[in-house]
């Protein structure tokens, strides 16, 4: 790994959410937390203990939760809904579409256990379509932080941002390496400079991309690694600036290829700066039960897949 980027110790992104929510409970009296019977999984206990009057347990009724959140927002509150990513999106798409997005409600949809790294629970819970669904909604901001620190920073930031937000994070303990002050909504984070290929990565795969970049450095390949934590609005300028230098792209995400970050990048580049692109993403498939890293490897999201994509895309230049 490069000198600047060090794993300070594995922690789950959802723990970063929980810590930030607790902090918001102390600093922002308008923040209200809602949960659909998963408060432990979402690490909401501290917020609830300190702010029992600003916590709403809705039970296993996510559609109702989204509506209640919209109503709280009408009353000037800043509702943070918490459940698994699957139940935060697909299950309640119409509620989000009509009562939140179309109605421009200041609701923060906070979604844990996204993607394959949910692990053993299997495909029913491993949503890989949520980024696509959420980024299609007009006015929705979509953020997928990569580690504990970034999830904490993003959670704090969205409280001060007016408008509906989808915040996607995950279950497993994972390397924690970004600095706490490096997050800004909509602004890509340059992690490693390089000239041969631009790697745009989001979520858990940012760390994997950094490992792959480190490994190919030994082969003389200089990767530029950029963390796209905000998928919508996309930081077009950062992407174009990098690609104008490297002339090729590898996109990395724990999501379907259809509708994910890679598609957003391809949409931009096809209009402004067409270049070869390789996708690291799940290709039109559901997941399955297993260990997080085993699943990433099986579905083509492992370090060796990223290395192969880097080598392929450079050949296509």
């Amino acid at each position: 790994m490069s000198n600047k980027i060090i794993n300070t110790g594995n922690r789950a992104t959802r723990e970063g959410f929980g810590e930030a929510l607790a902090e918001l409970g102390r600093t922002n009296k308008n923040v209200v937390a809602l949960c659909a019977d998963l408060l432990g999984s979402l690490n909401m206990q501290t917020f609830i203990a300190e702010n029992p009057d600003r916590f709403v347990q809705v039970g296993i009724a996510e559609a109702n939760m989204m509506g209640i959140a919209a109503g709280l927002a009408i009353g000037g509150k800043i509702p943070f809904t918490g459940t698994f990513a699957n139940f935060s999106t697909g299950r309640v798409y119409d509620q989000i579409r009509q009562s939140i997005a179309y109605s421009d409600k200041n609701v923060k949809i906070c979604a844990s256990h996204a993607g394959l790294t949910l692990g053993e629970d299997g495909a029913t819970h491993q949503i890989l379509e949520d980024i696509g669904m959420m980024k299609m909604l007009p006015g929705m901001t979509v953020i997928n932080p990569c580690d504990f620190n970034q999830t904490k920073a993003a959670t704090l930031a969205i409280a001060d941002f007016h408008g509906p937000v989808y915040l996607r994070f995950g279950r497993p303990s994972w390397p924690n390496f970004t600095s706490v002050d490096s997050f800004e909504i909509g602004k890509a984070l340059l992690l490693q400079e390089g000239t041969d290929v631009s790697i745009f990565a989001t979520g858990h795969l940012v760390w994997t991309a950094l490992e792959a970049a480190q490994e190919v450095a030994a082969l003389g390949i200089r990767c530029e690694v950029i963390n796209i934590h905000t998928i919508k609005p996309l930081d077009n300028q950062a992407i174009l600036d990098s690609v104008s230098k490297t002339k090729c792209v590898v996109s990395c995400e724990e999501h379907q290829r259809n509708g994910g970050l890679g598609d957003s990048i391809a949409q931009l580049l096809s209009q402004k700066m067409p270049v070869p692109q390789e996708y690291i993403a799940v290709i039109d498939s559901f997941g399955e039960s297993g260990k997080p890293n085993d699943l990433l490897e099986k579905y083509g999201l492992g370090k060796k897949d990223i290395i192969a994509a880097i080598q392929n895309v450079i050949k296509r230049k």
Partner: peptide, 18 residues
Amino acid sequence: VASGSLGQGISVAIGAAL
């Protein structure tokens, strides 16, 4: 709030009531 897709209004009203 927008309405038309049915079944959502009571939930929103509850949020406003809370």
